[in-house]
Amino acid sequence: MLVDFTAPVAASPAEVEAAAVSAEQVGYDGFAAAETRHDVFTTLALVARATTHITLQSGIAVAFARNPMNVAVLANDLQLISEGRFRLGLGSQVKPHIERRFAMPWSRPAARMEEFVAALRAIWRTWATGERLAFRGEFYRHTLMTDFFSPGPNPFGNPPVELAAVGDLMVRAAGRVADGLLVHPLTSADYLGERILPALREARGGSLDGFSLAMSAMVVLGADEQQRARAEQAVRGQIAFYASTPAYRPVLETHGWGDLADRLNGMSRRQAWADMANEITDDVLDAFAIAGDPAAVAAGLHDRFGSAIDRISLYTPYEADRYQMAAVRTALRKD
């Protein structure tokens, strides 16, 4: 597996830039930035200028907050600035955020995402070949492109498109139109093997050749017992937060934990965030996170995901010890 570094979600653009420089210096293969408090494309433009060889990924950019033309331009520019090192990671977000935070339309997200990527590729094809832009879909129509607004063919080619997916419909959409899948941190080995991989293979005609799977995996690390205890509590809280979202209920159902999903969803509606971590039992924690010293964490990641995942990063919703993380990276590469 290639080992990537993911920037802290609350980091400023300047802090993300510094983290990327450090990640490249110590030998990570790739660097990902999320879109939470800042625009991921602006942040990665800084990163692209500050680094030379590490790959860069939007992990994720919110597709439905934009339209295919916006994203086509932004991704094309980042591919130019990074000289071919960019990987376009897209996600749908969930309905309340799209409708109430972004004031954008929401309907049939898997079908909309599949068409979004098809439109994106049609725009890139027009720029590369000069052919007339004539994309007409159910959700998007792009039928105008003049020379004045066309950047022309990208000398580094188009960036790979990777979709974040959890549910069956979105996984299948990724298999049909994307170059890779971004596996959600709330993914167990059972859910990956029983639900995601079969759906992908069916969507792709049986083969995953040329298709990339990347995952940010939750881990519990700490240099001493006190640090590990804080890390474990933070991970329990993050699992509870994700598991409270109805879109992730199928993951819990795979393990017979549908009632937990319902309970957590109810608690989230009551804003009982502080109590939700206590609902995450040791069995649930073990299904979605790997704990231990760096060697044990690396071995656990390799055992669970090594046969399917091409790229992996460590999801640490706490301030992780950088030496511990570096030791995991080193151990993963030895495996």
Rank of each mutant, 00 (worst) to 15 (best):
residue 49 R to Q: 15
residue 49 R to T: 09
residue 49 R to G: 14
residue 50 A to P: 03
residue 51 T to A: 09
residue 51 T to L: 08
residue 52 T to A: 00
residue 53 H to C: 14
residue 53 H to W: 15
residue 54 I to R: 09
residue 54 I to C: 08
residue 54 I to N: 06
residue 54 I to T: 07
residue 54 I to D: 12
residue 55 T to C: 02
residue 55 T to V: 11
residue 56 L to M: 01
residue 58 S to A: 13
residue 58 S to D: 13
residue 58 S to W: 02
residue 60 I to P: 05
residue 61 A to F: 05
residue 61 A to R: 13
residue 61 A to H: 15
residue 62 V to A: 06
residue 63 A to P: 06
residue 63 A to R: 11
residue 65 A to P: 02
residue 65 A to D: 06
residue 66 R to M: 07
residue 66 R to P: 06
residue 66 R to A: 00
residue 67 N to E: 06
residue 67 N to Q: 13
residue 68 P to D: 15
residue 68 P to C: 11
residue 69 M to W: 05
residue 69 M to N: 00
residue 70 N to H: 11
residue 70 N to Q: 12
residue 70 N to G: 07
residue 71 V to T: 04
residue 72 A to Q: 13
residue 72 A to R: 02
residue 72 A to I: 00
residue 73 V to K: 10
residue 73 V to T: 13
residue 75 A to D: 09
residue 75 A to H: 15
residue 75 A to S: 07
residue 76 N to L: 09
residue 76 N to Y: 07
residue 77 D to T: 02
residue 77 D to G: 01
residue 77 D to E: 15
residue 77 D to A: 02
residue 79 Q to G: 08
residue 80 L to E: 14
residue 80 L to H: 12
residue 80 L to K: 04
residue 80 L to F: 08
residue 81 I to Q: 11
residue 81 I to L: 11
residue 82 S to I: 08
residue 82 S to G: 06
residue 83 E to C: 04
residue 84 G to R: 03
residue 85 R to C: 02
residue 85 R to W: 06
residue 85 R to D: 01
residue 85 R to V: 01
residue 86 F to E: 04
residue 86 F to G: 01
residue 86 F to H: 00
residue 86 F to P: 10
residue 87 R to A: 15
residue 87 R to N: 15
residue 87 R to Q: 13
residue 88 L to F: 03
residue 90 L to W: 13
residue 91 G to P: 03
residue 92 S to A: 11
residue 93 Q to G: 13
residue 93 Q to D: 02
residue 94 V to M: 10
residue 95 K to P: 00
residue 95 K to R: 07
residue 95 K to Y: 00
residue 96 P to Y: 11
residue 97 H to P: 02
residue 98 I to C: 13
residue 98 I to D: 03
residue 98 I to W: 03
residue 99 E to T: 10
residue 100 R to G: 04
residue 100 R to W: 01
